[in-house]
């Protein structure tokens, strides 16, 4: 279900916690599974639950509670834009609108070529860098003027 590399990463997470507390690694294990699969299918959640030794519903609770898990297919590039108040005061909403126009999609939609998915995000703890957006959950892009958005999209388009 998961690659050896992913399993090794999960094992490294498990090793951080005391014996018998493998469940503590669940959030990271689901993240690692999602990174490998591109999203988090139910089979992967069930597999991770089994690997960690907890009932699948306990993993499902976590997968549905934390906002960064993608429980449905997303494009190759998921772009999450913060539109919360501090960002909005420095153009977060405008940046999102610009992205919508450029990609021709609304929030929670994916471009027909499957390349881009756009999401509205909540506070990322980087309000000073507004407008901010997150690429595929893990890479934060700061000070996103329209020029920088153009640049970023051109880069991603090439990948």
């Amino acid at each position: 279900m998961l690659s050896q590399e992913s399993l090794q990463q999960i094992d490294r997470e498990i090793a951080k916690y005391p014996p018998g507390k493998k469940q503590s690694a669940l959030i990271s294990a689901l993240r690692i599974a999602q990174q490998e699969k591109g999203w988090l299918p139910k089979e992967a959640i069930e597999f991770v639950a089994g690997y960690i030794g907890i009932p699948p519903i306990a993993a499902w609770e976590v997968a549905t509670f934390y906002g960064m898990y993608d429980l449905a297919h997303v494009g190759r590039h998921k772009i999450t834009v913060c539109t919360n108040l501090p960002c909005a005061l420095s153009g977060g909403v405008h940046a999102a609108e610009y992205l919508k126009k450029k990609l021709g999609i609304d929030f929670n939609e994916t471009t027909p070529d499957g390349k881009f998915t756009l999401k509205e995000g909540e506070c990322m703890g980087a309000c000073g860098d507004a407008p901010v957006l997150l690429h595929n959950n893990h890479h934060m892009c700061s000070f996103m003027t329209t020029e920088k958005i153009d640049e970023m999209l051109a880069d991603l388009e090439k990948q």
Partner: peptide, 13 residues
């Protein structure tokens, strides 16, 4: 599963 007022009781799958 889920959170806030989307929270609902369920079994896995």
């Amino acid at each position: 599963a889920f959170r806030g007022d989307h929270a609902e009781i369920m079994t896995f799958l």
